[in-house]
Amino acid sequence: MGRHLQVQGVSEGDVVRYAIPKPEPLRVEHEQFRDAVLGFDADIVTMEQGLRTVLVAGACLESARTGSTIAIDT
């Protein structure tokens, strides 16, 4: 017959649990886009920031492919 391993839980002191709200990501994204279109403050990136991120990602891929350092214009 097979052996069975018995595992018991261990507790060390008091546990404090914090309730952290976790809004649905797609809903938050849509609400931020709506607010930006309406001219309200919105926590979204600018087109320039988005472009910069794409350029950096492309440079990372090129560097990984070639094994060389890729310079990005600032």
Score class of each variant (00 low, 15 high):
Q32E: 14
Y18G: 03
V15T: 13
Q32A: 14
T66N: 02
Q6I: 11
T46A: 12
D14Y: 07
E31T: 14
V16A: 10
A42F: 09
Y18E: 13
E48N: 12
T69D: 07
L26G: 00
K22L: 11
A71D: 12
V37G: 00
F40T: 00
V56F: 05
T69G: 01
T74V: 06
I44K: 03
D14R: 12
R52M: 14
R27F: 13
E24T: 06
V7F: 01
L61K: 11
R27K: 15
R17C: 06
V16S: 07
P23V: 06
A57K: 14
P25V: 01
D41W: 02
V56S: 02
H4D: 05
T46I: 15
K22W: 06
P25N: 04
L26Q: 10
K22G: 01
R27N: 11
H4E: 08
M47D: 11
V7W: 02
E29L: 15
P25K: 05
S63D: 01
L61W: 13
A42K: 07
A71V: 13
Q32W: 06
L61T: 10
R27D: 13
I72Y: 04
P25S: 02
G67Q: 04
Q32C: 04
E12Y: 05
M1K: 08
L55W: 13
A71Q: 10
R34K: 10
A19Q: 07
D41K: 13
A59V: 05
V54A: 15
A42S: 15
